[in-house]
Amino acid sequence: MKWTAIDDFGIVINPMIVEGQVHGGIAQGVGQALLEGAVYDKHGQLVTGSYMDYCMPRADNLPSFNVDYVVTKCPSNPLGIKGCGEAGAIAAPVAVVNAITNAVGHEDVPMPATPQAVWAAVQKSAKLRKAAE
């Protein structure tokens, strides 16, 4: 996986800390897109009640990230800064789903796109290709 993120946080006070925030947000976003999902059954029982079934992103699920900036100053505060805490988590899930749908060639991919979901999507692409031939 290759990951590039460009953010505009206006003036940055401490880039090391800001980049750390971006990394963490992306990881949570990738988690939502590929791994995480709380599941209740039809009787309202939570069936993902531990890390055995709720899949938390681990180090080997993620790549290193390329993070960089563009800067436009925020005119509505004295420092010209913008918030950065949630940024990564906002843009990441949909970028992942857009990439997977691009790879499989159709739009029918749910979140989280688990191995089983991706397998099903690949099966569907094969069927669609066959139908088109």
């Binding site: 993902t48 055995m52 899949c55 688990t114």
Partner: peptide, 11 residues
Amino acid sequence: KFPNPASRYAL
């Protein structure tokens, strides 16, 4: 082995 993404037991 194809691990269960969450528990890492064998799927």
